[in-house]
Amino acid sequence: MFSDYSLGDLGSILAMQGFAGLILFSVFVLMALGLAIIFGQMGVINMAHGEFMILGAYVTYLCSELFTNYLPALYNGYFPVAIVAAFCASGALGLLVEWVLIRHLYRRPLDTLLATWGLSLILQQVYRSIFGAREVGVELPDWMLGSTHLTDTIEVPINGIIVMCITTAITVAVYLLIFRSGWGKRVRAVMSNRTMAGAVGIDTERVDRMTFGIGCGIAGIAGSAFTMVGSTSPTAGQLYIVDTFLVVVFGGAQSLLGTIASAFTISQAQSTLEFFTSGSNAKVLTLLTVVAILMVRPQGLFTVKVRR
């Protein structure tokens, strides 16, 4: 499949598909970050994580509609507002879900799996009732459209660069939160030994709620980014949850660096392969490679070495 292209062409294609994959990479990183901190902190696999992302996407869509209809002069600035709103909406829903549902099911992994799966179906139906089954898309303001030319043959989409910057900022913020803040210290203590964390005076249930809320809020931001690569529909989140699980498992659930490296590898592999074969072939090839690597390194790409 590579033989029709010259070496120079191949280089350009790789670079351009690589940049095109940036938004996908960002969505993966943000989704995986949320999923991984929730799983690491409380052992809950959130099957509804994709729906939290889609909530963020709908909030972004609502923001763009709002600006179009009432504040057209400020349309250029809608995206930052949408990101904050998406984080707040998904985060708030996360807090509510934790309080109503999840906290009653700790230490019952199968039950949380089923409960969050049920929640994902409910949310999909709610979206369908409110927004309709049709896909919705957002108009990007002019300054975010188009691309810059790096060389004659390589061009980079501007929105990709913007989303990359946002993702970098969020990742750094999460890193600082986990390794430098008081909340992060509590989270790491609970991850290390929940019983003992309680016995040194940490209110573990409150930490759980905060963590779930923040994880879901980050999924909301992923939803904002998602509006740039895909159109938002009630079931769009489902397509991403499997990929995100892949990213988390491949990266090794405990490691921030692993999550990023694995999101990068998987999104780039998919984006590049998609150019040469069909989308589903790209998925299959990626999946096979990940499975093969996991057979050699079952603990994932990165792990922390310490005596337990």
Binding site: G182, K185, R186, R188, A189, M191, S192, N193, T195, M196, A197, V200, G201, I202, V304, V306, R307, R308
Partner: peptide, 19 residues
């Protein structure tokens, strides 16, 4: 039952939150 992945200083600091 110390928190094995956290540093010595962080381990002690986990006890400070309550007050």
């Amino acid at each position: 039952m110390i928190f094995s992945t956290m540093t010595v200083q962080e381990n002690i600091e986990t006890g400070l939150f309550v007050r």
